[in-house]
Amino acid sequence: MTAIAERKNTVTFKGNPVTLLGNEVKVGDQAPDFTVLANDLSQVTLDSSKGSVRLISVVPSLDTGVCDAQTRRFNEEAASLPGVKVLTISVDLPFAQKRWCGAAGIENVQTLSDHRDLSFGINYGVAIKELRLLARAVFVIDKNDKVVYVEYVPEVTNHPNYEAAIEAAKSVL
Rank of each mutant, 00 (worst) to 15 (best):
N23D: 04
V25G: 02
V25I: 03
V25T: 05
V25Q: 09
V25R: 04
K26D: 08
V27D: 00
G28A: 08
G28P: 10
Q30F: 11
Q30P: 01
P32D: 14
D33P: 10
F34I: 10
L37M: 13
L37R: 13
L41W: 07
S42G: 10
T45D: 13
T45P: 09
D47I: 11
S48I: 12
S48H: 10
S49Y: 08
S52F: 08
S52T: 13
L55S: 09
V58N: 01
V59Q: 06
P60C: 13
S61L: 15
D63W: 13
D63S: 12
T64P: 02
G65L: 07
D68I: 01
D68H: 11
D68G: 08
A69Y: 11
A69G: 13
R72P: 07
R73E: 06
F74I: 03
N75S: 11
E76L: 11
E77N: 08
A79W: 00
S80T: 03
S80I: 01
S80V: 07
P82C: 12
V84S: 05
V84I: 11
V84Y: 01
K85L: 10
L87A: 10
I89M: 08
S90K: 03
V91Y: 00
D92F: 05
L93M: 13
P94M: 04
F95K: 09
A96R: 09
Q97P: 10
K98D: 14
R99V: 06
R99H: 04
G102C: 12
G102T: 15
A103R: 05
A103W: 02
A104L: 02
I106E: 03
E107M: 15
V109S: 10
T111Y: 15
L112N: 12
S113Y: 04
D114Y: 12
H115Q: 13
D117I: 11
